[in-house]
């Protein structure tokens, strides 16, 4: 498999500006996402994340700048691009009066699926969402976690090459979140490119190869988690060579000699790991009604 740097770009944005009157929601943003990569898009409210995703997914037009998604112009090639992208919205965008299976069949048909292929994709999606045994129930009686999982798989029926996930785990329990993570892992294994926005930094740590932090419509930081950490702690570019098999004591000596401050901490599991260890990872699907 080729290294990430060798892969072609799935998303290329240069000097993107989106203005609403005098206000600029996106202000000269540039970023690139390689195929197969999972990019975490972070930023406070109003940073320009949602506007950027709306432009990339054909729902909004840029004021200026260059945008290319999967080699296509979202403005000119909207229909072709829509066939190749999946968008998981933050809100539960499902018909509550329809069953889980009916929702998936509807969205599948709109994506051009029919017959045996449609039935196969719907069954697979219900399985992915852990809802195979609740397929005939109306979405209105699903729990929040069940609705979130269905909301996610509804965007994946047509097996898109690029998936935008906008805070896909809001308001769900750790079991369902864990299930969503597993779904994202499967997407990555399939080779899909993912742009993942969230306020939960732990999710980015867990899922993303690279992180872009936006503020005031611009990229203020970009890189892998380690790169961002180093940059934040001011140790970027400092290092020391350790021999293979060095003992801890020797290693500490070498690091201190190189002027690197070393602090030893016990690696304790996070609260979510504790919770899942105690309560189990199996889904808890109680009716939402």
């Amino acid at each position: 498999m080729s290294s990430p740097e060798d892969r072609p770009l799935a998303v290329r944005v240069e000097g993107l500006v989106k203005a609403y009157g005098a206000a600029r929601a996106v202000d000269g943003l540039s970023l690139a996402v390689r195929r197969g990569e999972c990019l975490g898009l972070l930023g406070p409210n109003g940073a320009g994340k949602t506007t950027t995703i709306r432009i990339l997914s054909t729902l909004a037009a840029p004021t200026s700048g260059r945008v290319e998604v999967l080699g296509l112009d979202p403005g000119r090639d909207a229909a072709r691009l829509r066939a190749r992208i999946g968008v998981v919205p933050q809100e539960i965008a499902l018909y509550e009066g329809l069953t889980g299976a009916e929702n998936l069949e509807f969205f599948g048909r709109l994506h051009g699926l029919s017959g045996a292929r449609l039935a196969e994709r719907v069954a697979a999606a219900l399985g992915d969402a852990g809802l195979a045994d609740r397929a005939g129930d109306r979405v209105a009686v699903y729990s929040g976690g069940m609705q979130r999982r269905l909301n996610l798989v509804a965007a994946l029926l047509h097996e898109p090459d690029l998936v935008f996930l906008d805070e896909p785990t809001v308001g769900i329990d750790p079991q369902s979140r864990h299930h969503v993570f597993a779904l994202v892992d499967r997407l990555r294994a399939r080779g899909a490119t993912i742009v993942y926005t969230t306020h939960l930094l732990g999710e980015v740590e867990r899922l993303c190869d690279r992180i872009v932090i936006l503020d005031h419509g611009r990229v203020i930081a970009e890189g892998t988690l380690d790169e961002l950490r180093r940059r934040a702690s001011g140790v970027s570019g400092r290092g020391a060579r350790l021999d293979a098999g060095a003992r801890v004591g020797e290693a500490l000596g070498v690091l201190r000699a190189a002027g690197i401050e070393v602090r030893v901490e016990e690696d304790l599991p996070g609260l979510e790991d504790v919770f899942l260890t105690l309560t189990g990872r199996a889904l808890r699907d109680e009716d939402g009604a």
Partner: peptide, 14 residues
């Protein structure tokens, strides 16, 4: 309001 319209609009030929 619920977002389903946007989801429908995101299909190729809606």
């Amino acid at each position: 309001q619920s977002g389903t319209l946007q989801r429908v609009q995101l299909t190729p030929h809606a």
